[in-house]
Simulated scan of single mutants.
Amino acid sequence: MRDLYNDQLEAIIANLVSMTHTVRAAVEQATSALLEADADAAETVIAGDKAIDEARERVEETSFELLATQQPVAGDLRMLIAALRIVADLERMGDLAVHVAKIARMRMPDRAVPPALRPTIANMAETAERMVAETARIIADRDVDAALALEAEDEEMDRLRRSMFRILLDEDWEYGVEPAIDLALLGRYYERIADHAVSMARRVVYLVTGQNPPHYE
């Protein structure tokens, strides 16, 4: 019976890692839709969000069942609490990828990102994808050092967003109001994806150590 319980706990971790890879792929495809006006990629992201929602429900159902029937304590209890919070972050990241894809789809057949900001958006997307991929490894390995380091990496995303706003607010901006609004939203979406990755990493620190890590300064 105890072996089954331990297997269920490990299955939750495996599901979280799998979901994280799915979310990373969604962010990658949403970015392709955005930068390349790829309609198929946009539709794939939008349609695929249902699978992320369903995966969240499965993790939640298993976690609540174990909380109710096994009365876990210490590390097992922390794991289930962390899993419930991580899976909520993942579901929200999937939603953010959908938001990116919908902006891309709305502006098709044109590309939503003007040439002046394509490098910045591409860098923001690359940073977000890298952070999500690293989070999958952090969850799988329960790597506290990598989890703490990820919060520092979030500074790069903040720097890129500030750079984007400098371009948007420059008096030489020539692309009009609608693209500026799109880009402000896109910057926020990628920034929030990075924030959720950091949140997930912090949950892993709590899972392993029982302590919430200090915020990176």
Results as ranks from 00 to 15, higher is better:
Ile81His: 15
Glu191Arg: 03
Val132Asn: 06
Leu96Gln: 12
Ala140Tyr: 07
Val45Thr: 00
Arg58Gln: 11
Glu126Tyr: 07
Ala39Met: 13
Arg159Ile: 15
Asp172Met: 14
Ala25Lys: 02
Arg188Phe: 05
Arg56Leu: 09
Arg162Asn: 13
Arg130Ile: 06
Val205Tyr: 00
Val98Tyr: 00
Arg137Ile: 14
Val198Gly: 01
Leu35Asn: 01
Gly48Trp: 04
Gly48Arg: 04
Met124Ala: 05
Glu126Pro: 07
Pro114Gln: 05
Asp195Leu: 01
Tyr175Arg: 09
Val23Thr: 05
Pro72Asp: 10
Ala97Gln: 00
Arg58Pro: 06
Ser63Leu: 13
Met108Leu: 09
Ala26Ile: 04
Val204Arg: 00
Ala122Val: 03
Glu61Met: 11
Val45Tyr: 00
Gln8Trp: 10
Leu4Trp: 14
Val132Ile: 14
Glu36Met: 13
Leu148Ser: 07
Glu10Leu: 13
Gly187Met: 05
Ile81Lys: 11
Asp53Cys: 07
Ala11Arg: 12
Pro119Cys: 07
Ser63Arg: 06
Ala11Val: 05
Val205Cys: 09
Ser32Gln: 15
Gly210Leu: 05
Ala55Ser: 13
Leu169Pro: 09
Ile139Met: 06
Phe165Ile: 08
Ile13Phe: 12
Met131Ser: 00
Thr31His: 01
Ala83Phe: 09
Trp173Pro: 03
Val23Asn: 00
Leu67His: 06
Val204Trp: 02
Arg159Gln: 08
Ala47Gly: 11
Thr20His: 02
Met93Cys: 03
Met79Gly: 14
Asp145Lys: 05
Met157Ala: 08
Glu28Thr: 13
Leu207Gln: 05
Gln29Val: 06
Met131Glu: 06
Ile121Tyr: 04
Val17Leu: 01
Val205Lys: 01
Ala37Lys: 07
Met1Leu: 15
Asp170Leu: 10
Arg105Tyr: 13
Thr22Cys: 11
Ala68Asp: 09
Ile181Pro: 12
Ile12Tyr: 00
Ala30Trp: 02
Ala147Glu: 02
Val59Met: 11
Arg137Met: 14
Gly94Met: 06
Lys50Ala: 13
Tyr190Gly: 03
Ala47Asp: 11
Trp173Asn: 04
Arg107Gln: 12
Arg142Tyr: 04
Gln211Asp: 12
Leu96Ile: 08
Ala194Cys: 09
Leu34Asn: 06
Arg118Ala: 10
Asp3Trp: 15
Ala11Met: 09
Ala68Met: 11
Arg192Asp: 08
Leu150Trp: 01
Glu217Pro: 12
Leu183Lys: 01
Leu148Asn: 09
Pro72Val: 10
Gln29Ile: 11
Phe64Val: 14
Glu10Ala: 11
Ala39Trp: 03
Leu183Cys: 06
Asp89Gly: 04
Asp76His: 10
Ile86Leu: 08
Ile86Asp: 02
Asp195Met: 04
Asp182Met: 01
Arg203Gly: 07
Val208Met: 02
Asp49Ile: 07
Ala41Trp: 01
Arg162Asp: 14
Ala51Asn: 09
Met124Ser: 03
Thr44Gln: 13
Ile167Val: 14
Glu178Cys: 14
Glu126Ser: 14
Ala25Ser: 12
Ala88Arg: 08
Asp7Ser: 15
Arg137Ser: 15
Arg137Asp: 13
Leu117Tyr: 03
Pro214Phe: 05
Pro109Gln: 00
Ile193Glu: 00
Asn123Thr: 14
Glu91Lys: 08
Glu217Tyr: 07
Ser18Ile: 12
Val98Gly: 00
Glu156Lys: 13
